[in-house]
Design a protein around this nucleic acid. Sequence first.
DNA 1: AAAATAGTGTCTCTAAGACAGTATATA
DNA 2: TATATACTGTCTTAGAGACACTATTTT
Lengths: 246, 246
Amino acid sequence: MSRDRSPAPGTAATAPVSTCAVAVDVALLTVREGRLQLLLVHPDAGPYTSQWALPGRRVRDDESLDDTAHRALRELAGLRAPDARLEQLRTYGDPSRDPRGRVVSVAYLALTPTVESVVDGGPLADGRAAFFDVGALAGGGGPPLAYDHDRIVPDAIERARSKLEYTALATAFVAEPFTLGELRRVYEAVWGVDLDAANFRRKVVSARDFVVEVEGTAAPGPEGGRPAKRYRRGRASRLHPAMLRP
Amino acid sequence: MSRDRSPAPGTAATAPVSTCAVAVDVALLTVREGRLQLLLVHPDAGPYTSQWALPGRRVRDDESLDDTAHRALRELAGLRAPDARLEQLRTYGDPSRDPRGRVVSVAYLALTPTVESVVDGGPLADGRAAFFDVGALAGGGGPPLAYDHDRIVPDAIERARSKLEYTALATAFVAEPFTLGELRRVYEAVWGVDLDAANFRRKVVSARDFVVEVEGTAAPGPEGGRPAKRYRRGRASRLHPAMLRP
DNA sequence: AAAATAGTGTCTCTAAGACAGTATATA
DNA sequence: TATATACTGTCTTAGAGACACTATTTT
């Protein structure tokens, strides 16, 4: 395959066309201890190594954008997250967003069940990566972020909150099999509200193919309670009817 | 500002990092003659000048992605569309999507009212740009498209159909002031369904800040009918409650 | 008058929300 | 026993859809 990166004939004379560095930054959200949290890392290069930033990597030759996103999580946070749901958020291409020059960044949204079990050692253990409460970040109580990541993070949070309404994305936050109580606590953490457990259950089970009941029951928590039925994800990606935010 | 495009220190030794050509491709949708139509052009350079493609341009130094999108419409279709609603669709970065080499393309979705009045002469007049029925393109009855644009186009159509449900985007397809009949025909064209005029009216006027009534009435069509009230866009961007697809 | 489009009234049905009540676990 | 969680029943109300009816225009 040709690797010619010069301007196409016909535009060269009239248009100054450049190439840009292309990067992928990942906003990984998860629910820990009942709160929505975001993964941040210290970049291992560049002008912001002492600040917190989204894990990001430059795109390599012959590497897809999705692959770059997975690599950023692996190399900067020590996360091997094959069960993470990854989707594009949007692309940030402001000419001055990176002080080193023009860098176009494709931002990804990643949603995972709690990942404590996956990780032992690595950046999460030695403090080069950490989870931060989304409530603090949105309220200004979080650390300052590198680059324009303080613009990306609110977009990621709002996208997640919004997609919980009309897609089956909430199940990406829980490991299978899960109980409807666990799923309800996902909605409560992401939206920051309390939901009526009875009405929530009715909506979830009546939404077509959202969840499918499986065999067995889950053990109650340390303070008791009736054992809960267990479910796995259904095949629906969109929710009918939607789960509207209160 | 530094324009250093070499790899950042610390990654150079371990990672082959390249720069990519970055392009913007625009899927412009409009409703003409009661049907949803897509703007396609013949590229003025590259390997696909004799095929139809989305209007696209390489991003220039110090040019924002939004500016590139507007420039693509202007230079390739002769469209000056200041009232077009432009938003990012997603970014296509497959390593082999362009035979000339690695080109990462940021795709935009553009929605406009009918543009006949804006254009006289230029590519739309001499056949280098044209509108195509979305129904034919989706059903395989359209022309073959250049690059991977046959993957972008369905994404654009589905995005438009979906955003009509829960955002106020439909008003981007009509010029102000508009009647609720015109707005209803937008929904009917984009979704490809017939809607009950009475129920549609009730939903639109009860959705908070979707449309605002203005003075005067619109003249009936050539076959008569009661003069319609006129409306302008309200300040809402999201629709509460949503306009669900039948 | 007939046809076309705009707008209102009203009925039915679904689903959301509030909340009382039942079931099954732990301490 | 008290407490916690899971689950069910029921009532009220909002909104979607079907469709009859009224209003105002053109031919």
